[in-house]
């Protein structure tokens, strides 16, 4: 007998920004931190942000979405190896809601795969804030994020899904004010 898909779930539009919870995702572009904070606000549970110890651009609690600063743990990694190790440990541990990391170098094939396995083991999503062109082939989805400037408001973002292992890519222009867990979608254009 063929299993019928659930009607309701098939009818209701899927949230395009939901990250698969057992995978590691990537975000690139100048708006990647905004995308990361948007995702952080949507994931309940403790958050971890792993960054290199020498990086001076740090989150400011007063500017984060409501509730994110209370749950956030910052981890300073002295080397790239420590950073990847921390991300793997955090993904594998299980109690976290989302793991954010800012690697400086492109991930090797092994590292990318190991992170995916760790995310599967711990059932924790990860989001790597990568630099332009440093994507890993193991990533489940990759988002190119750009802030959009408009003369009338300053909340515009363009989030492009440029890689998706289990679905289609897409482009969304949204208005997100940087504080809430929801965003106002302007248009949806499927490439």
């Amino acid at each position: 007998m063929k299993i019928q898909p659930d009607r309701r779930s098939a009818d209701t539009p899927r949230d395009p920004f939901a990250l698969a919870s057992t995978r590691v995702h990537e975000a690139a572009g100048p708006g990647r931190r905004a995308f990361a904070l948007f995702q952080a606000a949507r994931h309940p549970g403790p958050l971890v942000w792993v960054l290199p110890a020498h990086q001076h651009q740090r989150p400011l609690p007063a500017g984060l979405p409501q509730g994110v600063a209370d749950r956030l743990l910052l981890i300073e990694a002295r080397s790239e190896t420590d950073l990847l190790w921390s991300v793997e440990e955090c993904l594998r541990a299980g109690p976290l809601g989302l793991v954010l990391a800012e690697p400086e170098k492109p991930l090797s094939l092994t590292a990318g795969r190991r992170l995916q396995l760790a995310a599967e083991a711990g059932r924790t999503p990860g989001l790597m804030l990568i630099r332009e062109g440093q994507g890993s082939t193991a990533a489940e989805t990759r988002w190119a994020c750009d802030p959009i400037s408009a003369p009338w408001d300053s909340t515009g973002h363009q989030w492009r899904l440029i890689k998706n292992k289990k679905g289609t890519t897409g482009l969304w222009t949204v208005h997100w004010d940087g504080t809430s867990t929801t965003c106002h979608m302007v248009s949806e254009a499927v490439q």
Partner: peptide
Amino acid sequence: PLRRPPRPATLF
């Protein structure tokens, strides 16, 4: 709670 005027998300 967040207050006005808004603060940046990241500081350097």
